[in-house]
Write a protein that binds this DNA or RNA. Structure first.
Length: 378
DNA sequence: GTATGCTTTCGGC
DNA sequence: TTACGGCCGAAAGCATAC
């Protein structure tokens, strides 16, 4: 493949910035967007905070109470998350970005890759000018700042965008890639988590540069062909993943905090069934069937336990979902004897259902209603 | 042996 | 001192198939 020019656009502190957008009077205050669990006045966690709040050490995932204490004397603004609003804002921005790309790939609610090779004739000066135009445009048209990374592939573009935040632009030209990566700690590389970091450390690898220079055969021996090869290439900044329009969702889930911790099946199941209904509604709205059902249970001590079951057919039926959830939840509770704090339901292995499948299902459902018997769709 | 798929856990936002 | 969300995709770890 000829040299590409790839851009990663990342909306800055997105939820909090969106809140600043609809209420500019909070701009010069610490803004903390929170998920309230509803259990007590302040129980819940921080989703995102603006940079002023971050100066006080407030971070994503932090308990709300802790953030409150850190911001005690700073006139903070605490707001509940409003996903619907953020989605509306995101959609407008994504439409604006899409118009500047040869190929476009949205990742999550606040990030997108743009392949701009053709429209810049693979020229980094052109690409830099385009990136600046995009930054001006998101501010002028939607009132939001973003950070942009520019590089020869998705991997480098993504890592570049992290360098200058917020409201920054970082360009890594092909001949600069090796130097850009070499000194970084190895766990900054996408795909290297804490476990892999530990294993690499034992091999004497602590930086991305060391990983790039490590003997390929030894790497393959240690991590297997697929992963070893990926580490070898990625550490050298080589990545040929195409920028391509994402398919539909891979999973749909709901999770919620119970009113109080309990080990009784009744109240847990009651909550899980509501979640099944919500997940199912999303599923039908998207026209999907599911193959895998997962339940997630968070215990009193915050330990996370999950169990899943894959069906050998695709279904879009609420009763199948509820029955499966009841069964694996019952198993988990019997097996673990936990006091549960939160419970969640997830479906995955999603498949778009054809008209023929939908007709078949409604036919079977009609028939099963008539005979008053439950029947699985295959 | 390696590839593939399934289940569980992790981590980003 | 503790405190503690919801949702997603990726990583890890294992089992089975070829």
């Amino acid at each position: 493949m000829q040299s590409r020019v790839i851009m990663l656009v990342d909306l800055d502190y997105f939820f909090a910035q969106a809140e600043e957008l609809r209420n500019p009077s909070i701009r010069d205050k610490p803004v903390v967007v929170c998920v309230y669990s509803g259990r007590t006045e302040t129980s819940g966690a921080v989703s995102t905070a603006n940079y002023l709040a971050r100066k006080f050490g407030v971070k994503s995932g932090m308990p709300i109470v802790q953030a409150k204490r850190r911001l005690r004397d700073a006139e903070p603004v605490f707001l509940p998350v409003d996903y619907g609003y953020y989605e509306t804002v995101s959609e407008k921005i994504m439409n604006l970005l899409r118009a500047h790309a040869d190929q476009f790939e949205q990742v999550g609610i606040d990030e997108a890759y743009l392949d701009v090779t053709q429209r810049t004739k693979a020229d980094y000066e052109d690409a830099a000018a385009l990136a600046q135009d995009i930054r001006k445009e998101t501010v002028a048209r939607q009132g939001l700042t973003c950070s942009i990374g520019l590089g020869p592939n998705k991997l480098v573009a993504k890592m570049a965008a992290d360098i200058n935040k917020p409201d920054g632009l970082t360009i890594v030209k092909p001949h600069e890639v090796a130097a850009f990566l070499a000194a970084m700690p190895v766990d900054r590389l996408i795909g290297v988590g804490s476990k892999t970091k530990e294993r690499m450390q034992k091999l004497g690898i602590t930086t991305i540069g060391e990983l790039a220079n490590y003997d390929v055969q030894r790497l393959l021996d240690a991590f297997g062909r697929k992963l070893g090869l990926y580490f070898h290439n990625a550490s050298a900044g080589a990545d040929d993943e195409p920028v391509q329009q994402r398919g539909e969702a891979e999973s749909i889930s709901r999770i919620a905090t119970l009113k109080e911790d309990t080990c009784e099946l009744g109240p847990i199941l009651e909550r899980a069934e509501v979640e099944c209904e919500e997940v199912h509604a999303d599923l039908i709205r998207g026209g999907f069937g599911f193959r895998t059902v997962t339940i997630i249970a968070v215990a009193k001590d915050m330990s996370v336990h999950s169990r899943s079951r894959s069906l050998d057919y695709s279904s879009d039926r609420l009763d199948v979902l509820k029955d499966t959830v009841r069964e694996i939840l019952t198993h988990l509770l019997a097996e673990c004897d936990l006091e549960i704090r939160r419970v969640g339901v997830k479906v995955s292995g999603l498949a778009k259902r054809s008209e023929a499948q939908k007709r078949l299902t409604s036919f079977i459902e009609e028939r099963s209603n008539q005979s008053d018997k439950k029947q699985a769709y295959i």
